[in-house]
């Protein structure tokens, strides 16, 4: 198992390297990075100064070295708009994003898992088709539109919920629903297919042959096994939620990382945009590694195989 984890960690490092290379490369290939690094409306002298300050007049590989050097020191640059380090900004917004993602995740699991189980137990019948339709709708509705319609109904017409901002639990309801909607569909699909896999297995057949009540077969023998991939995906999705919440956070003015990214775009605050993308990518790469390790420790079969 030690070798397996070492190899995974190696891949992970390689991925991080490729990630930094991708971002570095794209910024430079698409034009003069100085144009992105200066504040809007800067003069030609300012641009020249930036060129020198960031070493943009030096060879590419030196530039990359400098880029990585600052990254290793946790320095993602300074936000033009807030005049504070990007890393600090990121960390100050992260709790809000995590809270939103956690509530959205709970919502998506509460909806996705039972409906997935229902669909798998009634495969090919009414509830299965209804679930399939629901999943397709979940995947076909842009989350920001769901958010806008929610505001229209619950804030503008019914006046039940605040339309934007943070502070009370009520503020969380609509953004969490809008964000969780898509993931509820994804979790339902996975629960269904995972349950179908398990229900077709020999040990479920044996459980039925033992004369166990069907409810016990589903609840004890199928559910626990079927849940493993769903929980794994949910773990990865939690991190993805933090990173794709940008539209939902924009719609509801939720002060999270997504909102920070949106501000970075609208204020042309390039260090913020680059920092959010870099940290988001790194977060996902690391979570994937964590999941691999967890799998290896939980599932004895992987432990033995590798």
């Amino acid at each position: 198992m030690g070798r397996y984890i070492t190899r995974r960690a190696g891949y992970c490092l390689l991925s991080l390297f490729l990630l930094s290379l991708t971002i570095f490369f794209f910024v430079r290939v698409t034009g003069d990075p100085a144009a992105l690094l200066v504040e809007p409306g800067a003069s030609a002298e300012d641009i020249a100064a930036i060129h020198h300050q960031f070493g943009l007049d030096r060879p590419l590989w030196v530039q990359y070295g400098l880029f990585m050097w600052t990254l290793f020191h946790g320095d993602l640059g300074q936000s033009f708009y807030y005049q504070t380090p990007v890393f600090d900004l990121y960390m100050s917004r992260l709790p809000n994003s995590l809270m939103l993602a956690a509530v959205a995740m709970i919502f998506s699991l509460i909806v996705g898992i039972p409906s997935g189980i229902l669909a798998s137990v009634r495969v090919g019948r009414f509830w299965d088709s209804a679930g399939k339709m629901f999943a397709l709708l979940g995947l076909s509705l842009p989350s920001f539109w769901v958010g806008l319609v929610l505001i229209l109904v619950f804030s503008v017409y019914l006046k039940w919920l605040p339309s934007s901002g943070a502070g009370t639990p009520l503020h969380l309801l609509m953004p969490a629903f809008a964000l969780g909607w898509y993931f509820a569909a994804a979790h339902m699909r996975l629960t269904r297919s995972s349950m179908l896999d398990v229900l077709g297995s020999e040990y479920i057949k044996l459980a039925r042959l033992k004369g166990l009540p069907e409810a016990l077969v589903i609840a004890k023998h199928a559910f626990k096994n079927a849940l493993i991939p769903v929980i794994t995906l949910a773990g990865i999705n939690l991190v993805i939620m933090v990173n794709v919440a940008v539209v939902v956070e924009t719609v509801f003015a939720w002060p999270g990382i997504g909102r920070l990214l949106y501000e970075g775009i609208t204020f042309r605050d390039f260090p913020v945009v680059q920092g959010v993308v870099l940290l988001g990518g790194a977060m996902i790469v690391l979570v994937n590694l964590l999941v691999d390790i967890l799998y290896a420790t939980i599932d004895p079969r992987i432990r033995l195989e590798r």
Partner: peptide
Amino acid sequence: ALPALTFAIFL
């Protein structure tokens, strides 16, 4: 591994 949306926004 990158969230497609974030990557597209960055580009």
